[in-house]
Simulated scan of single mutants.
Amino acid sequence: MSHVEDELKDQPACWTRAAAEVIRFRDRLPAPGERVAYVGCGTSYHMARAAAALREDAGLGETDAHPASEFPARRRYDRVVALTRSGTTTEVLDLLVALRGHVPTTAITADPHTPVMTAADRAVVLDYADERSVVQTRFATTVLTLLRAHLGLHTDAVIQDARTALTAPLPQGLERAAQFTFLGRGWSVGLAHEAALKMREAALAWSESYPAMEYRHGPVSVTTTGTATWMFGPPPDGLAEVVRATGATWVADGLDPLADLVRAQRLAVATAVARGLDPDRPRHLTRSVILTDP
């Protein structure tokens, strides 16, 4: 069994712990009314997008999400929160150093023995959610669980949905689909982007992701027999019928969107295995992107 399979199965326990411990970190996380930016790279950026949408929708303050490499230097924030599993990603460290003394910063990381601990003003360490696989699963979702709990949006029902996501069978033959499209609305758009990234990373699969209402504005043209369209959260009226009419597989299970991401992680692993790939070691990828000076 691969590391990623073990790690994704551990998510209910990690989420339970994160929700229980969030009170320890309240002074390090955004306060109501602050103007906040979440930043990250890759998977962490997609979690940042979901967290930003949740916070702003909850009415707790203007909240943006940016790739660390594309942070808008002229935009003013009361706090910047960086998500980084490894604590060594060059773009994140460079941004935190540039912001020092100008904007309060918090890093959420899995490794307390990395440069991010001194690059950021404050740190939240979720070392119990760290991973051996290059592909992120439990760290990313545990970070988002922590942030949901901080907003008062986490419930025990999410944990139960995660357990269901780990045990319910995937639609038969789904791992053999020729193309995958993931859709979301609001905060689950970030989850759709993350699901598509998982499919590309682990399984080298043709995968795309969109806000659900944008799907019919062009992307639906690639949907046909032998492809799959996966919806995170409630779909727009009539969308399921549009997809089924193309002959594609429609996937929407009614789980909490974060729990549904666990199912998408399982699909990525199953597709990788079906293609004879090692989901722990995607080609051309490493645990952290560390750039060197030219």
Rank of each mutant, 00 (worst) to 15 (best):
L60T: 05
L29T: 07
A52E: 10
F71D: 12
L83E: 12
E70H: 14
E62H: 10
T43L: 03
R85C: 03
F71Q: 06
P32W: 04
T43N: 06
T89P: 00
A48F: 12
D27C: 12
E62L: 07
V80C: 09
V81E: 06
V81G: 03
A51H: 01
S69K: 10
T63P: 04
T63W: 04
R74Y: 13
A58W: 02
R79H: 15
V39M: 04
Y45S: 09
M47L: 15
L54T: 02
E34R: 08
R76P: 00
R49T: 07
P30W: 03
S86M: 09
G59R: 01
L60D: 08
R26A: 15
H66A: 11
D57I: 00
P72M: 02
G40R: 11
P72N: 09
Y45K: 00
F71T: 07
G33W: 03
T84R: 00
C41P: 03
S86C: 05
G42W: 12
L54A: 09
P32H: 07
M47H: 06
D78H: 09
T63K: 10
T43P: 02
G42D: 07
Y45Q: 14
V81W: 12
F71A: 11
V39D: 11
E91I: 09
R55M: 10
V39S: 05
T84E: 09
L60I: 07
R85K: 13
P30N: 11
L60H: 01
A73L: 13
G87R: 00
R74W: 13
L29W: 11
V80F: 03
F25Q: 04
Y77H: 06
T63R: 10
A31R: 14
A82F: 06
L60F: 02
F71W: 14
A52K: 07
F71R: 03
R26I: 13
R35W: 02
A37V: 12
L60S: 01
R76D: 06
P32I: 08
A82D: 09
F71P: 01
L83K: 01
A82E: 12
L60W: 04
M47C: 09
R76L: 11
L54C: 11
T63I: 09
P67K: 14
A48V: 05
E34I: 02
G61T: 09
Y45H: 15
A73D: 13
S86W: 12
R74F: 07
S69G: 14
D64G: 03
R75D: 09
S44F: 08
R79C: 07
D57W: 08
G33D: 10
T90F: 10
T84L: 01
P32V: 02
D64L: 14
E56N: 02
G42L: 14
T89L: 05
C41I: 15
P32Y: 06
F71V: 11
T63F: 01
D27S: 15
A37Y: 08
M47G: 05
E56Q: 15
T84Q: 07
A37S: 11
H46L: 11
C41V: 15
A65P: 11
P30I: 11
T90A: 10
G42E: 14
H46V: 06
A68C: 14
Y45M: 13
A53W: 12
R26K: 15
G40A: 01
T89N: 05
A48K: 11
M47A: 15
L54E: 13
Y38S: 07
A50Q: 00
S69E: 12
D78R: 06
P30Y: 02
A50R: 02
F25A: 08
R79V: 01
L29F: 08
Y77C: 07
